[in-house]
Amino acid sequence: MAAGGDHGSPDSYRSPLASRYASPEMCFVFSDRYKFRTWRQLWLWLAEAEQTLGLPITDEQIQEMKSNLENIDFKMAAEEEKRLRHDVMAHVHTFGHCCPKAAGIIHLGATSCYVGDNTDLIILRNALDLLLPKLARVISRLADFAKERASLPTLGFTHFQPAQLTTVGKRCCLWIQDLCMDLQNLKRVRDDLRFRGVKGTTGTQASFLQLFEGDDHKVEQLDKMVTEKAGFKRAFIITGQTYTRKVDIEVLSVLASLGASVHKICTDIRLLANLKEMEEPFEKQQIGSSAMPYKRNPMRSERCCSLARHLMTLVMDPLQTASVQWFERTLDDSANRRICLAEAFLTADTILNTLQNISEGLVVYPKVIERRIRQELPFMATENIIMAMVKAGGSRQDCHEKIRVLSQQAASVVKQEGGDNDLIERIQVDAYFSPIHSQLDHLLDPSSFTGRASQQVQRFLEEEVYPLLKPYESVMKVKAELCL
């Protein structure tokens, strides 16, 4: 049975990233139509530049190519590739079939990587351009969430054990800070992308030097003109047959890092959902379990974690691919890159769409948070109580021993009897502590235990987050809708 299948058929496997999760716009960027249309555009740009620099290419040939950029006979191309065992030459023939007058000058002087690699770089750039505003929107939604809850005390956790208090907004800023680093890295790697350009079979530009009869300047002009037509500021000066596969490492490393950030955020949300302090959106008709109707599973956060793990592992592909590119190139890269580049971007696209949807509907339960604080705060307040007693004339050592005994009794009630923490009640009825009984409410005010959390939130948002989001103001209103 021949390899390949009808990918629109229910009898043929289709990647869930495309069929179930990723956005239509990201799927289109990695589609065959987008790819092969870009090949034709690159052939047109090459012909236009070659004509401008004096090669015998007519206006009629150029116009014929322009008129057929979208006229792609995919069936013919597939048949040609089956016959020739070469995808680029299959599309040269297919393009030439609908451009008979231009057929002889299509791909003039070029090698397969002229269309293959340059198209990949265009796709990487455009895919990054799709991700950047999506990530900015996630940051914006979380920034709104953090600002609104900047002063809401909550129990902090280290080692997932109760620690000092923080605020809900401050905790959210930990998430935002990681995503801001990801946004900066995505922008950097996007701006650092260079075009492969017009380089020939081993990167020496020998074929173009021959076409222009040894004119170095025209060869350099050709490279520059096509690079500018493709919208790049610069091209690699040095290439082998391909652009260095280190570029793929750079791009997928940034995406993998984004995956790590999203995994951490969504894990926190899942843990908070278990504590009943916070939940992701839950639709009115949504079913959490087929057997347990009360369940409210954090399905979206779980999906993000599941896909983020996949995204983090994909960076190993370009690392290994770059390491086995012998001399000017081997074909070890080809099949692998067809999979890992598309999957990385479709996965990143999915987790950003999902995280935006989550961040637009996060639900906080202040009463649950308050109750958990009441359970733990008495123990945390013991040092403040000791200091207040010393100020009232008591002995630190005597007070410490009193607190120690009462704390152990209260802990026994919590752990052995399943009761509430009654340390404060014990202190309130103990005559030894009568000098500070009137101060206990103040000493137990949760806001006095959150330090500068709310001020940190305000400063972080104003100095770091809002300036970073400013270039994306025009796209901030787009909502994230999930079908599944």
Rank of each mutant, 00 (worst) to 15 (best):
W39S: 05
E50F: 05
G104R: 08
Y13G: 07
Q184K: 04
L186T: 13
P298R: 13
L132H: 09
D333A: 15
P10K: 14
L271P: 04
Q205L: 01
G419A: 05
Q41Y: 12
R337Y: 13
S301R: 13
A322N: 00
M278S: 06
E464L: 00
V413N: 15
M181L: 05
R188M: 05
E360Q: 13
D73E: 05
Q286W: 11
Q63N: 13
A335S: 08
Y114K: 01
D268A: 00
L252V: 10
R37Y: 14
G109M: 03
Q397N: 09
V315D: 04
N384T: 08
F236Y: 12
R196N: 08
A103K: 02
A90H: 04
N68Q: 14
S151L: 01
R270K: 04
N71C: 04
Q164C: 04
D445I: 00
M476R: 12
K233N: 12
K147M: 06
P281R: 11
A322K: 10
A410F: 00
M316L: 07
S438C: 15
D73M: 02
S112N: 01
L255I: 04
F236A: 02
A392H: 12
V414N: 15
K264V: 11
R337W: 00
D430N: 02
P318D: 00
D73K: 01
R245T: 10
Y365V: 12
Q205W: 07
A47H: 07
T354E: 04
E383G: 12
I105M: 15
G104Q: 04
T38K: 15
R85G: 08
P153T: 06
Q325L: 06
A388G: 08
E50T: 13
A22W: 12
T382M: 15
I139A: 08
G394I: 10
E48V: 06
G393W: 06
Q286N: 12
R396Y: 10
G231R: 06
K66A: 03
K170C: 05
M389C: 00
R20E: 05
F74Q: 00
R234E: 15
F30Y: 05
G109I: 13
L179A: 03
T242D: 00
E370P: 15
I427M: 12
L341E: 14
S257L: 13
H86K: 07
R234K: 01
A431Y: 01
D182L: 05
K134S: 11
E370C: 00
P366Q: 12
C173D: 10
D182Y: 04
G214Q: 07
V413D: 09
R300Y: 05
E481R: 11
R338T: 05
C305G: 14
A392G: 01
F208K: 07
Q221F: 11
M316I: 07
P318L: 01
L423E: 10
G197I: 00
E343G: 11
A102I: 01
L331Y: 14
G200S: 09
E425M: 14
I287T: 04
P298M: 04
S290P: 05
G109R: 05
R337Q: 10
C98V: 10
D144W: 04
L42W: 03
R14E: 14
D317Q: 09
E425D: 03
A480W: 13
A110L: 04
L484S: 09
L307P: 13
K246R: 12
L482T: 02
R194N: 09
G288K: 02
L155Y: 09
A322G: 10
E228K: 15
P467M: 04
E48C: 11
R85L: 02
L484Q: 15
S9N: 12
D191Y: 10
A230M: 10
N68I: 06
V429G: 14
P471Y: 04
N68M: 12
N353G: 07
A136C: 06
D144N: 06
K415M: 02
V390K: 14
G288E: 07
L222N: 07
A235S: 06
P133W: 05
V429W: 04
L46Q: 04
S412R: 13
W43R: 06
H437P: 04
A308L: 12
G116H: 03
E417V: 14
L469Q: 01
P153H: 00
F30V: 09
C172P: 14
